[in-house]
Design a protein around this nucleic acid. Sequence first.
RNA 1: UGCCCUGUAGCGUAAUGGCUAUCGCACUUGACUCUGGAUCAAGGAAUUUCAGGUUCGAAUCCUGACAGGGCAGCCA
Length: 557
Amino acid sequence: MENKTETTPEPKNFVREIIDEHIRIQRFDKHIHTRFPPEPNGYLHIGHAKSICLNFGIARDYNGKCNLRFDDTNPSKEEVEYVDSIKEDVRWLGFQWDSELYASDYFEQLYEYAVQLIKKGKAFVCDLTGDEIRKYRGTLTEPGKESPYRNRSVHENLQLFQQMREGKFPDGTKTLRAKIDMNSPNINLRDPVMYRILRATHHRTGDAWCIYPMYDYAHGQSDSIEKITHSICTLEFEDHRPLYEWFIKELGIFLPQQIEFARLNLSYTMMSKRRLLQLVEEKIVNSWDDPRMPTISGFRRRGYTPESIREFAERIGVAKRDNTIDVALLENCLRDDLNKHAPRMMAVLKPLKVIIDNYPDNQVEELDAVNNPEDENAGSRKIPFSKTLYIEQDDFKEIPPPKYFRLTPGNEVRLRYAYIIKCESIVKNDRGEVVEIHCTYDKDTKSGTGTSQKKVKGTIHWVSASQAIDAEVRLYDRLFTVENPSGDDWKKYLNPNSLEVLTNCKLEPHLANAKIQERFQFERLGYFSVDYDSTKEKLVFNRTVTLKDTWAKIEKK
RNA sequence: UGCCCUGUAGCGUAAUGGCUAUCGCACUUGACUCUGGAUCAAGGAAUUUCAGGUUCGAAUCCUGACAGGGCAGCCA
């Protein structure tokens, strides 16, 4: 776990205020103990990252502990693949849990607790079907009706519950229910189901059980068993808190404090786990870790740093009101981090050939290039310069728009770390497209020599043709075209141009040794990282994020 | 229409009854620049949802309205 420096003020939010107050009044005598409780039924997304940073961050700052507990009470949806990915993602974010636990670790204890509640007359076996339970529950505005099975004797309930466990009844034919209040205005208190009969192989307990506890019954007791002091969850569980506390109080066991906060919403992003699954299953994206996915593994593959995501989680704060964070804030956190740490390189994504007519035919110069102007220790490297180069197609315009500072016929521009060149003539193909530019260079303008006072407005990047290495570059854009892609027709907001694959990119030779996941800034273009698909023979880069582009903004106007 | 929660610049967020309502992102302008990047400087933007009340003093406390969100799985 990373260390907090003295210069970072502790983030203040209402959750920490509650904890501070609990410490002041000594509500919990020992340490602060939180937990991150994912259900292993999907991959973690950026919204989970908020929760992870909250829970682990509190444990870190209060010298407490944080468990990783899998809420694995529904074997029909859960898989080890998800367990593994979740662990990897939490670790990658930079956190280490104190204990790795599973709600299924407590199945026996939970069963015992249920027996206790039956003995107290607080739970009963119900024979109502799913449909009937729904009808008996009433509605938001009408009270419910008591189940006809509600008044079975303790003895009968004990026997039936044991038989449920033993597999005497088919799936769905009986439930164990808490006996609370069918008239409660809080629907969660209308005799909620505690156990259902479900024959499914559990990823950890196999076929040992055919009854499984419901979330409401399992979660609080799991917290209690682990002596979690602060059980932090999202807003939709607010109405469940009375039930959470009811079970624990009836059982007479340790009572944690549940605190609810507002989940993260991100603009141009969809966070529904179910729909994310759909994107993967319907092959709208390539995988859970497709760089367009808002999953942690997607961000990782795209080239995001864990530091930037942690910083993001801190900057967005924690509160109870619904919120939508501008995805630009996330990108800002990323650029902040990458700007300081990513080495700069030259890469031409859409090449246009430039020939320096007055440059000696077979000469190759090795020019000095700074690796990172933001980091003195990053040093410098040599890049080859020769008569034939590639520049970016966008960096030449035959008919320049206003305020265009790049190469145009008869005009000069600086080649980064090299010379000032002047466009003398252009060559077009049959279709009238510019395919080659002839220039002359001014040899007194070599970078770093200071022999010429000549100033030009524009500086462009380039790559020497004969030394350039080839690569594929994948350009990603937002997955959705609207800020809030919700509703049943959310798929019509998918961005058809969310991925553009460029196969003819030219990179400076230094990049030949780039390792998978390594991050670079391609000067003037953005930050790029090496994709998992990359090999020595065929380099593949992902565009993680563009640089801020003032020109693009001007162009739009 | 029952219960619960939430309303502070475009988006987030701070204020804990006391100066002119904080900070970040976004936006605008300027400086600088061999990345139209980074950096620096400046600026616009909030009658704190509304209406009453308590108080010398209210974003904050009270009452009422209005608006938004959540809840009727044998999902979590």
